[in-house]
Design a binder for these strands. Structure first.
Length: 317
DNA sequence: CAAGCGTGGCG
DNA sequence: TCGCCAAGCTT
Protein backbone atom coordinates (compact mmCIF):
# COMPACT_ATOMS: atom_id res chain seq x y z
CA UNK A 1 0.00 0.00 0.00
CA UNK A 2 2.99 2.29 0.07
CA UNK A 3 2.52 2.56 -3.66
CA UNK A 4 -0.85 4.25 -3.29
CA UNK A 5 0.35 7.85 -2.99
CA UNK A 6 2.31 7.65 -6.28
CA UNK A 7 -0.79 6.12 -7.81
CA UNK A 8 -2.85 9.06 -6.60
CA UNK A 9 -0.38 11.52 -8.11
CA UNK A 10 -0.29 9.78 -11.45
CA UNK A 11 -4.07 9.57 -11.74
CA UNK A 12 -4.43 13.22 -10.73
CA UNK A 13 -1.98 14.47 -13.33
CA UNK A 14 -3.57 12.21 -15.94
CA UNK A 15 -6.91 13.82 -15.06
CA UNK A 16 -5.62 17.35 -15.44
CA UNK A 17 -4.35 16.50 -18.88
CA UNK A 18 -7.25 14.45 -20.19
CA UNK A 19 -10.40 15.61 -18.41
CA UNK A 20 -13.41 16.46 -20.51
CA UNK A 21 -14.61 20.04 -20.55
CA UNK A 22 -17.97 19.72 -18.78
CA UNK A 23 -20.23 22.59 -17.71
CA UNK A 24 -20.22 21.67 -14.02
CA UNK A 25 -16.44 21.70 -14.09
CA UNK A 26 -16.55 25.41 -14.90
CA UNK A 27 -18.26 26.39 -11.67
CA UNK A 28 -17.63 26.23 -7.97
CA UNK A 29 -21.25 26.95 -7.08
CA UNK A 30 -22.31 24.17 -4.68
CA UNK A 31 -25.89 24.38 -5.94
CA UNK A 32 -24.83 23.80 -9.53
CA UNK A 33 -22.59 20.92 -8.49
CA UNK A 34 -25.42 19.43 -6.46
CA UNK A 35 -27.78 19.61 -9.44
CA UNK A 36 -25.16 17.97 -11.65
CA UNK A 37 -24.61 15.14 -9.18
CA UNK A 38 -28.32 14.39 -8.94
CA UNK A 39 -28.70 14.41 -12.73
CA UNK A 40 -25.66 12.18 -13.12
CA UNK A 41 -27.07 9.44 -10.91
CA UNK A 42 -27.31 6.41 -13.20
CA UNK A 43 -27.17 8.71 -16.18
CA UNK A 44 -24.41 9.30 -18.70
CA UNK A 45 -22.56 12.57 -18.97
CA UNK A 46 -23.54 13.18 -22.61
CA UNK A 47 -27.21 12.74 -21.74
CA UNK A 48 -27.05 15.09 -18.79
CA UNK A 49 -25.27 18.07 -20.38
CA UNK A 50 -28.22 19.66 -22.24
CA UNK A 51 -30.60 19.06 -19.36
CA UNK A 52 -28.12 20.57 -16.92
CA UNK A 53 -27.73 23.72 -19.02
CA UNK A 54 -31.48 24.22 -19.41
CA UNK A 55 -32.20 23.45 -15.79
CA UNK A 56 -29.68 25.95 -14.47
CA UNK A 57 -30.98 28.60 -16.83
CA UNK A 58 -34.50 27.94 -15.61
CA UNK A 59 -33.55 27.59 -11.92
CA UNK A 60 -30.27 29.47 -11.45
CA UNK A 61 -30.14 29.08 -7.68
CA UNK A 62 -31.58 27.11 -4.81
CA UNK A 63 -34.10 29.85 -4.03
CA UNK A 64 -35.61 29.95 -7.49
CA UNK A 65 -35.84 26.16 -7.42
CA UNK A 66 -37.51 26.23 -4.02
CA UNK A 67 -40.06 28.78 -5.22
CA UNK A 68 -41.05 26.77 -8.28
CA UNK A 69 -44.00 24.42 -8.45
CA UNK A 70 -43.15 20.75 -8.60
CA UNK A 71 -44.80 20.47 -12.01
CA UNK A 72 -42.40 23.10 -13.36
CA UNK A 73 -39.44 21.18 -12.02
CA UNK A 74 -40.74 17.94 -13.52
CA UNK A 75 -41.24 19.69 -16.84
CA UNK A 76 -37.60 20.78 -16.84
CA UNK A 77 -36.64 17.20 -15.98
CA UNK A 78 -38.86 15.66 -18.62
CA UNK A 79 -36.90 13.23 -20.79
CA UNK A 80 -34.08 12.71 -18.31
CA UNK A 81 -35.68 9.83 -16.44
CA UNK A 82 -35.79 8.74 -12.80
CA UNK A 83 -38.28 11.46 -11.98
CA UNK A 84 -38.11 10.82 -8.27
CA UNK A 85 -34.76 12.61 -8.44
CA UNK A 86 -36.50 15.78 -9.55
CA UNK A 87 -39.10 15.58 -6.78
CA UNK A 88 -36.39 14.95 -4.20
CA UNK A 89 -34.23 17.78 -5.52
CA UNK A 90 -37.16 20.17 -5.36
CA UNK A 91 -38.14 19.11 -1.84
CA UNK A 92 -34.51 19.32 -0.76
CA UNK A 93 -34.19 22.85 -2.17
CA UNK A 94 -37.09 23.93 0.02
CA UNK A 95 -35.42 22.35 3.05
CA UNK A 96 -32.13 24.09 2.24
CA UNK A 97 -33.89 27.46 2.04
CA UNK A 98 -35.89 26.94 5.19
CA UNK A 99 -33.37 25.16 7.38
CA UNK A 100 -30.00 26.30 6.06
CA UNK A 101 -30.65 29.87 4.97
CA UNK A 102 -30.46 28.94 1.29
CA UNK A 103 -26.88 27.74 1.60
CA UNK A 104 -25.97 24.17 0.70
CA UNK A 105 -24.77 22.48 3.90
CA UNK A 106 -21.18 21.22 4.01
CA UNK A 107 -21.35 18.51 6.62
CA UNK A 108 -22.09 14.91 5.80
CA UNK A 109 -25.03 14.51 8.20
CA UNK A 110 -26.90 17.55 6.89
CA UNK A 111 -26.32 16.48 3.30
CA UNK A 112 -27.51 12.93 3.98
CA UNK A 113 -30.63 14.34 5.61
CA UNK A 114 -31.68 15.87 2.28
CA UNK A 115 -33.90 13.71 0.07
CA UNK A 116 -32.08 12.26 -2.91
CA UNK A 117 -28.63 12.52 -1.33
CA UNK A 118 -27.02 9.25 -0.27
CA UNK A 119 -23.46 8.32 0.64
CA UNK A 120 -22.06 8.79 -2.84
CA UNK A 121 -23.68 12.16 -3.55
CA UNK A 122 -22.86 13.54 -0.11
CA UNK A 123 -19.19 12.68 -0.56
CA UNK A 124 -19.15 14.02 -4.12
CA UNK A 125 -20.59 17.37 -3.01
CA UNK A 126 -18.28 17.57 -0.02
CA UNK A 127 -15.18 16.97 -2.10
CA UNK A 128 -16.04 18.74 -5.35
CA UNK A 129 -17.94 21.74 -4.02
CA UNK A 130 -16.23 22.22 -0.67
CA UNK A 131 -12.80 20.67 -1.12
CA UNK A 132 -13.25 18.26 1.76
CA UNK A 133 -11.64 14.82 1.82
CA UNK A 134 -14.53 12.41 1.32
CA UNK A 135 -14.62 9.13 -0.56
CA UNK A 136 -17.29 9.14 -3.27
CA UNK A 137 -17.81 5.52 -4.26
CA UNK A 138 -19.88 5.14 -7.42
CA UNK A 139 -19.99 2.44 -10.08
CA UNK A 140 -16.85 3.79 -11.74
CA UNK A 141 -14.87 3.82 -8.52
CA UNK A 142 -15.96 0.29 -7.68
CA UNK A 143 -14.79 -0.94 -11.07
CA UNK A 144 -11.52 1.01 -11.11
CA UNK A 145 -10.47 0.14 -7.59
CA UNK A 146 -11.64 -3.47 -7.87
CA UNK A 147 -9.35 -3.82 -10.87
CA UNK A 148 -6.39 -2.02 -9.36
CA UNK A 149 -6.69 -3.96 -6.11
CA UNK A 150 -7.74 -7.20 -7.75
CA UNK A 151 -10.82 -7.45 -5.54
CA UNK A 152 -13.34 -10.10 -6.47
CA UNK A 153 -17.10 -10.08 -5.97
CA UNK A 154 -20.09 -8.71 -7.79
CA UNK A 155 -20.50 -5.02 -8.37
CA UNK A 156 -23.28 -4.67 -5.80
CA UNK A 157 -21.96 -7.11 -3.21
CA UNK A 158 -21.40 -5.71 0.25
CA UNK A 159 -17.98 -7.38 0.42
CA UNK A 160 -16.64 -5.68 -2.70
CA UNK A 161 -18.13 -2.36 -1.68
CA UNK A 162 -16.43 -2.56 1.72
CA UNK A 163 -13.05 -3.35 0.20
CA UNK A 164 -13.34 -0.56 -2.35
CA UNK A 165 -14.57 1.96 0.21
CA UNK A 166 -11.62 1.25 2.48
CA UNK A 167 -9.18 1.81 -0.37
CA UNK A 168 -11.05 4.89 -1.55
CA UNK A 169 -10.92 6.41 1.93
CA UNK A 170 -7.19 5.87 2.21
CA UNK A 171 -6.78 7.62 -1.14
CA UNK A 172 -8.85 10.71 -0.34
CA UNK A 173 -6.16 12.13 1.90
CA UNK A 174 -3.98 14.46 -0.09
CA UNK A 175 -4.22 17.60 -2.18
CA UNK A 176 -7.27 18.54 -4.24
CA UNK A 177 -9.95 16.15 -2.99
CA UNK A 178 -12.44 17.42 -5.57
CA UNK A 179 -10.13 16.74 -8.49
CA UNK A 180 -9.31 13.36 -7.02
CA UNK A 181 -12.99 12.39 -6.81
CA UNK A 182 -13.55 13.40 -10.40
CA UNK A 183 -10.27 11.87 -11.59
CA UNK A 184 -11.21 8.41 -10.40
CA UNK A 185 -14.63 8.62 -12.03
CA UNK A 186 -13.23 10.12 -15.22
CA UNK A 187 -10.76 7.27 -15.44
CA UNK A 188 -13.62 4.80 -15.12
CA UNK A 189 -15.78 6.63 -17.63
CA UNK A 190 -13.21 7.08 -20.39
CA UNK A 191 -10.42 4.54 -19.93
CA UNK A 192 -11.09 1.88 -17.33
CA UNK A 193 -14.40 1.18 -19.06
CA UNK A 194 -16.45 -1.96 -18.36
CA UNK A 195 -15.65 -3.75 -21.63
CA UNK A 196 -12.30 -3.56 -23.41
CA UNK A 197 -10.54 -1.20 -21.00
CA UNK A 198 -7.81 0.92 -22.60
CA UNK A 199 -5.02 -0.23 -20.33
CA UNK A 200 -2.26 1.08 -22.59
CA UNK A 201 -3.26 4.63 -21.80
CA UNK A 202 -4.13 4.11 -18.15
CA UNK A 203 -2.06 5.96 -15.56
CA UNK A 204 -2.72 3.15 -13.09
CA UNK A 205 -1.75 0.26 -15.37
CA UNK A 206 1.46 -0.49 -13.47
CA UNK A 207 -0.48 -0.69 -10.19
CA UNK A 208 -3.30 -2.82 -11.55
CA UNK A 209 -3.61 -6.33 -10.16
CA UNK A 210 -6.38 -7.24 -12.58
CA UNK A 211 -4.25 -6.27 -15.56
CA UNK A 212 -1.32 -8.25 -14.21
CA UNK A 213 -3.55 -11.29 -13.90
CA UNK A 214 -5.01 -10.80 -17.38
CA UNK A 215 -8.62 -10.12 -18.37
CA UNK A 216 -9.11 -6.94 -16.34
CA UNK A 217 -12.52 -6.70 -18.00
CA UNK A 218 -13.64 -9.55 -15.73
CA UNK A 219 -13.65 -7.16 -12.77
CA UNK A 220 -16.03 -6.72 -11.15
CA UNK A 221 -17.98 -9.91 -11.78
CA UNK A 222 -21.08 -9.65 -13.92
CA UNK A 223 -24.41 -8.58 -12.57
CA UNK A 224 -27.39 -10.89 -12.68
CA UNK A 225 -29.56 -10.70 -15.74
CA UNK A 226 -33.01 -9.18 -15.58
CA UNK A 227 -36.28 -9.99 -17.28
CA UNK A 228 -38.69 -7.30 -18.46
CA UNK A 229 -42.27 -7.53 -17.38
CA UNK A 230 -45.37 -5.84 -18.69
CA UNK A 231 -48.58 -4.84 -17.00
CA UNK A 232 -51.63 -4.02 -19.02
CA UNK A 233 -54.13 -1.53 -17.72
CA UNK A 234 -56.87 0.64 -19.04
CA UNK A 235 -56.31 4.38 -19.11
CA UNK A 236 -57.96 7.40 -20.56
CA UNK A 237 -55.74 9.16 -23.10
CA UNK A 238 -56.43 12.75 -24.08
CA UNK A 239 -54.28 14.71 -26.44
CA UNK A 240 -54.17 18.34 -27.41
CA UNK A 241 -51.23 19.34 -29.56
CA UNK A 242 -48.11 18.11 -27.82
CA UNK A 243 -49.87 17.95 -24.47
CA UNK A 244 -50.96 14.50 -23.33
CA UNK A 245 -53.07 13.52 -20.35
CA UNK A 246 -53.30 10.00 -18.93
CA UNK A 247 -55.80 8.90 -16.34
CA UNK A 248 -55.26 5.30 -15.20
CA UNK A 249 -58.25 3.27 -14.08
CA UNK A 250 -56.73 2.68 -10.69
CA UNK A 251 -54.67 5.02 -8.61
CA UNK A 252 -51.21 3.64 -8.09
CA UNK A 253 -49.88 6.99 -7.09
CA UNK A 254 -46.24 5.95 -7.22
CA UNK A 255 -46.12 4.45 -10.69
CA UNK A 256 -44.80 6.37 -13.66
CA UNK A 257 -46.93 5.69 -16.68
CA UNK A 258 -45.88 5.68 -20.30
CA UNK A 259 -47.59 4.51 -23.44
CA UNK A 260 -46.97 1.10 -25.01
CA UNK A 261 -44.20 2.00 -27.42
CA UNK A 262 -43.04 -1.59 -27.64
CA UNK A 263 -46.25 -2.64 -29.35
CA UNK A 264 -45.76 -0.09 -32.08
CA UNK A 265 -42.78 -1.98 -33.40
CA UNK A 266 -40.60 0.82 -32.11
CA UNK A 267 -36.89 0.18 -31.96
CA UNK A 268 -34.78 1.19 -29.03
CA UNK A 269 -33.90 4.45 -30.72
CA UNK A 270 -37.52 5.53 -30.83
CA UNK A 271 -38.02 4.71 -27.21
CA UNK A 272 -37.30 8.39 -26.94
CA UNK A 273 -40.73 8.79 -28.48
CA UNK A 274 -42.31 7.90 -25.18
CA UNK A 275 -43.91 10.94 -23.69
CA UNK A 276 -42.93 11.48 -20.11
CA UNK A 277 -46.06 11.47 -18.12
CA UNK A 278 -45.07 11.71 -14.51
CA UNK A 279 -47.14 9.72 -12.08
CA UNK A 280 -50.13 9.71 -9.86
CA UNK A 281 -53.84 9.64 -10.52
CA UNK A 282 -53.57 11.79 -13.57
CA UNK A 283 -50.35 12.20 -15.49
CA UNK A 284 -49.70 15.16 -17.74
CA UNK A 285 -46.80 15.48 -20.11
CA UNK A 286 -45.47 16.67 -23.43
CA UNK A 287 -44.68 14.71 -26.53
CA UNK A 288 -41.07 15.10 -27.59
CA UNK A 289 -40.53 17.49 -30.48
CA UNK A 290 -38.90 15.06 -32.86
CA UNK A 291 -40.65 13.91 -36.00
CA UNK A 292 -39.95 10.29 -35.11
CA UNK A 293 -41.76 10.77 -31.84
CA UNK A 294 -44.77 12.29 -33.50
CA UNK A 295 -45.00 9.38 -35.92
CA UNK A 296 -44.63 6.79 -33.19
CA UNK A 297 -47.40 8.31 -31.11
CA UNK A 298 -50.67 6.72 -32.24
CA UNK A 299 -53.16 8.92 -30.46
CA UNK A 300 -54.66 11.51 -32.79
CA UNK A 301 -54.90 15.17 -32.04
CA UNK A 302 -57.91 16.35 -30.10
CA UNK A 303 -59.47 12.98 -29.40
CA UNK A 304 -59.94 10.83 -26.39
CA UNK A 305 -59.39 7.10 -26.25
CA UNK A 306 -59.40 4.22 -23.88
CA UNK A 307 -56.37 2.06 -24.49
CA UNK A 308 -54.15 -0.30 -22.66
CA UNK A 309 -50.84 0.98 -21.45
CA UNK A 310 -47.69 -0.72 -20.37
CA UNK A 311 -45.71 -0.43 -17.25
CA UNK A 312 -42.22 -1.76 -17.79
CA UNK A 313 -40.38 -3.13 -14.84
CA UNK A 314 -37.53 -5.45 -14.11
CA UNK A 315 -37.26 -8.68 -12.23
CA UNK A 316 -34.26 -10.71 -11.23
CA UNK A 317 -33.79 -14.06 -12.91
C1' DC B 1 -31.60 -6.03 1.12
C1' DA B 2 -33.82 -6.86 -3.18
C1' DA B 3 -36.77 -4.39 -6.00
C1' DG B 4 -38.05 -0.44 -8.50
C1' DC B 5 -37.13 3.53 -11.00
C1' DG B 6 -36.15 6.17 -17.25
C1' DT B 7 -33.46 6.73 -20.89
C1' DG B 8 -29.80 6.21 -24.26
C1' DG B 9 -25.71 3.99 -26.20
C1' DC B 10 -23.03 0.17 -27.34
C1' DG B 11 -21.37 -4.41 -29.35
C1' DT C 1 -32.57 -6.90 -32.38
C1' DC C 2 -31.20 -7.74 -27.85
C1' DG C 3 -28.90 -7.57 -23.43
C1' DC C 4 -26.14 -5.02 -20.60
C1' DC C 5 -24.91 -1.02 -18.34
C1' DA C 6 -24.39 3.99 -16.84
C1' DA C 7 -21.52 10.00 -11.74
C1' DG C 8 -27.57 5.86 -6.92
C1' DC C 9 -31.37 6.45 -3.80
C1' DT C 10 -35.31 4.88 -1.32
C1' DT C 11 -38.29 1.63 0.79
Amino acid sequence: MTRLPPLRRRVLSWYRKHKRDLPWRRTRDPYAIWVSEIMLQQTRVETVVPFYRRFLRRFPGVSSLAKARESQVLAAWSGLGYYRRARHLHAAARIVVRRHGARIPEDRASLLALPGIGEYTAAAIQSIAFGRAAAAVDGNVIRVLARIGGYTGRRDSATLRRAVTATAESLTRGPDPGDWTQALMELGATTCVPRDPLCDRCPAARDCVAKRRGRPDRFPEAQRAVLPREEHRVVLVARSGRRVLLIPDDADARATWTLPYARLGASSSSRAARPVLGSGRAALGDLPRSRTAARAFPYPQGTTHVRSIVRGSRRML
